[in-house]
Design a protein around this nucleic acid. Structure first.
Length: 105
DNA sequence: AGTGTGACCTTCA
DNA sequence: TTGAAGGCCACAC
């Protein structure tokens, strides 16, 4: 049974451990379609209804909280990341490369 | 069946 | 080096 693109993206996003972050491109690439990185964010939007999908751990390739605007508050995403020990400044993750996670299954 | 949209990425100037 | 434009795929209407 084939999972929808949304389910796949959500599943990968779910694999991101505590205190780590990843990028849409990494997820898209893991799905075999790096060109559909946009769809990953679109899938995140759908996964926003689910509590098991830490969408706040997923950011763009530069570590910018591009999707923060989609969260309830204006800085809810930032607070969630800071709550995990990740430093965020100007909607951007500090030392993003250090927190970057790319060891998906 | 076709058009429009989108939490992006890559490349050209 | 920095800035801007295009492309790309999947889903909803």
């Amino acid at each position: 049974m084939e999972k929808s693109f949304y389910e796949k993206a959500q599943d990968l996003a779910r694999q991101v451990p505590f205190g780590r972050v990843t990028t849409y491109g990494a997820i898209a690439k893991k799905l075999g379609m790096i060109r559909s990185a946009r769809m990953v964010g679109y899938a995140m939007n759908a996964s926003h209804n689910l509590d098991d999908v830490p969408a706040h751990r997923v950011v763009n390739r530069v570590g910018l909280l591009s999707g923060k605007h989609h969260f309830e508050g204006t800085n809810l995403m930032q607070q969630l990341l800071e709550s995990e020990g990740i430093i965020v400044k100007n909607n951007q993750i500090v030392d993003f490369e250090k927190y970057f996670w790319n060891d998906f299954k």
